[in-house]
């Protein structure tokens, strides 16, 4: 390198670089993988539902009740956790198929991780697959996992103000399950207010207040699932 170029350092070198305008999403690579996975699942005729919520909102309990109630539907569950296999063990005890994936510290599932997890799954006789995402109301909403539908759970003890605090999660979800309604007498949760707030962010969102413990509201949720499976196969 001659002295002039050396003195100018990286600056001079940069002059020979071209500027490429992109206007692309940071997650463009993930979005492409997600589209691919969605097409594969459509071909298989299996509806993948991405289930998102905070830790302790009752994701596994809701799934357990759904699996027990919908015996005629083949259900599989992809359990995402930072570590451990406790959820997968609970699901398998009910006779449903479960695969555990570890995100190794990451706060969300992306399309690549979902694809890898699903590749371990045997889809014979399966109509519906749930991806039980990492318990977190922020990061999972930002990544397309390749699921056909996104569902979030908000439990009564968490409070009716959550749509105001985590707007993206409510905007990205096709359905909201308000869980643990059997606990309503002990909390100041205003169901009407919560529904109004969620609808303000996402007018198309379907809302199902349920108690997986008493079974209240489970019919409406399960009918919605059946309709989504039928629509997915059209």
């Amino acid at each position: 390198m001659d002295q002039l170029a050396e003195a100018a350092g990286g600056r001079l070198e940069k002059q020979f670089m071209k500027v490429i305008e992109l206007k692309a999403s940071v997650t463009a690579s993930n979005d492409r993988e997600a589209e691919k996975l969605r097409r594969q699942m459509k071909q298989k005729g299996v509806l993948l539902i991405n289930l998102m919520s905070s830790p302790g909102s009752g994701k596994t309990t809701l799934l357990s009740r759904t699996i027990t109630d919908m015996k005629d539907i083949g259900i599989a569950v992809l359990e995402a956790d930072i570590d451990s296999a406790v959820d997968a063990e609970r699901i398998e005890a009910l006779g449903a198929r479960a695969v555990q994936v570890h995100t190794d510290g990451m706060c969300h599932m992306d399309a690549g991780m979902t694809q890898r997890g699903l590749s371990e799954m045997n889809f014979e006789g399966i109509d519906l697959a749930f991806l039980e995402n990492i318990g977190n109301l922020i990061c999972p909403a930002e990544y397309d996992t390749g699921a056909g539908k996104n569902v979030m759970i908000l439990s009564v003890p968490e409070g009716d103000d959550k749509p105001l605090k985590y707007p993206l999660m409510f905007q990205q979800s096709d359905a909201l399950v308000i869980s643990k309604t059997d606990a309503l007498p002990w909390f100041t949760f205003d169901t009407e207010k919560c529904i109004k707030r969620a609808k303000m962010l996402n007018p198309a969102i379907e809302i199902f207040p349920v108690s997986a413990k008493t079974g209240e509201g489970m019919d409406a949720w399960e009918n919605w699932l059946r309709k989504q499976i039928a629509d997915w196969r059209k």
Binding site: K14, Q15, F16, M17, K18, V19, I20, E21, L22, K23, A24, S25, V26, A28, R32
Partner: peptide
């Protein structure tokens, strides 16, 4: 959170500005 642009060096060494769309 959008990638607006990058400055890059290519194999053919062209300097022109261009727009690339990532689907």
């Amino acid at each position: 959170c959008i990638i607006k642009q990058i400055e890059a060096e290519t194999e053919d060494g062209t300097e022109s500005e261009e727009t690339v769309t990532i689907e």
